[in-house]
Design a protein around this nucleic acid. Sequence first.
DNA 1: AGTTCAGTGATGCGT
DNA 2: ACGCATCGCTGAACT
Lengths: 201, 201
Amino acid sequence: MHCRCIVIYEGRAKSYLKEGDYIIIKKPDGTILIHGASKQTPLNFQCAGANISINKNELISERRREKLTIKIIKIHHYYLINEWSNNEIEIRMTENDLRNHIKENIEELLKEKIIKIEEEYPTKFGPIDLLAIDVNNVYHVIEIKRKKASISACSQVDRYLSCINENKKGWIMSPSISKNALNYLNEKNINWLEVTHQTDI
Amino acid sequence: MHCRCIVIYEGRAKSYLKEGDYIIIKKPDGTILIHGASKQTPLNFQCAGANISINKNELISERRREKLTIKIIKIHHYYLINEWSNNEIEIRMTENDLRNHIKENIEELLKEKIIKIEEEYPTKFGPIDLLAIDVNNVYHVIEIKRKKASISACSQVDRYLSCINENKKGWIMSPSISKNALNYLNEKNINWLEVTHQTDI
DNA sequence: AGTTCAGTGATGCGT
DNA sequence: ACGCATCGCTGAACT
C-alpha cells in the first residue's frame, strides 16, 4: 500500500515518523513494514506475530509490549498480494561453512597432530567455536570470524582462555584482522591465522 | 513490483533464492529489496548506491564487489511510486538519551563529588562512554548499555581500564545485566549499576 | 517464556 | 576508505 500517513511506536523504544508518503507492507504472518524513499532498513516495523486492528483511519498493531500505530491520511494505491511464496533462501560462505573447512584442515593449519576437536565447546563465558587438543595436550582455543576480526574477537579468545586450566594457545582465524586487534593480540598470548572461504562450492 | 522470479547473489556471501512469487522494491537511492510472504527481513537485498542494468528479462544490480541478479519470469503487478517521502524517524530511549540522563545525575549515581566528566573519551582501544573524575582523583570508567548488558560490555570496560594510569573504577550502567556478565564482573574490579530510561519524555 | 549468537547484518560517526 | 559501536537490530537454536 502506498499512502500518506503518520506512524507512532511505543515499546522497546519510542518513535515518531512525521506525516509523509510511504510504502506500507503487511505480510500474512503479521509483519508490518513502513519504507521511506531510501535505505535498506524500514523506517518503522512490527515483527511477526502481531495482532492488527483497525479503528476508523488508524491501523494498530500490537505484539507483547509493543504498539505500532499508523494514522492513515490518504491511500494512493492499494494492492492485495494473492500469490506470495514463503521459500527460504540458501546462503553459503557463512561462519559455519568456514568452521567446517577449518575443522577438516585443522592439523595442516595448526601444524600439530590433533587428538580431539570440539565445536561450540561450552565455558562459563560462552561457547568456544573450536577447541582442538593436540598430541602434547595443548588446548587450542580457536575463534572464527567470517570477515575481518575486530578487537572484540580478541577479548572473546581472552575470556575463553581464562576458562582453560591446561597448557593452552589462543587463535583467531579469519580472512583479515583490524590493526587495533593485531596490536591487542601482540600484548596477549593469542595468534592470528589467515583463512579464506571456499568459494568454489 | 510483484513478480515470479529467481534471485542470485554473489558478494560478501553467496545465495540462491529459488523460483517463486515475491515482492520487489526498488528505491531511488539504488536500494533493492526482495520480500517473501513472511519475516521482517528481506530474503535478498542490495544496499544503497548500486548501479542497475537490465538485460532482457534479467535485472542486474552491482555495487562494489556485490552482484544481485533477478531473473524475472512473470510480472504480476507493477506500480511506480511518484510521491515517496525521505523523512527521517525520530527515536527516543536510545543509548544517547540514557547517557544524558546519567551525566545529569552522575554525582547521585556514583555517590561522589565529580570535578570533571567527559563523553566519548578516546583511548587506544576505543572511546569510553563516560569518564568521570571525582574529587579524590579517582577515574570512573563508565560503559552504558540501553538494554541488558552482556559479557562483551565487561570486556570493553576491562580494555578501557587498561588504558587509564590513575586510580580507577570500572562501571557498567544498564537496565539489566546477563548472568554470564555478572560472573565476569565478580572476577574483575568492575561494578554494575542499574539505571532506567526516563520514559516520561 | 528467556538467553545467546550469527548476520551479505545495516547504519552512523570518526579518523 | 577503514575502524568501531549501536540497533526498537532480526532470526534461529537451545534451554
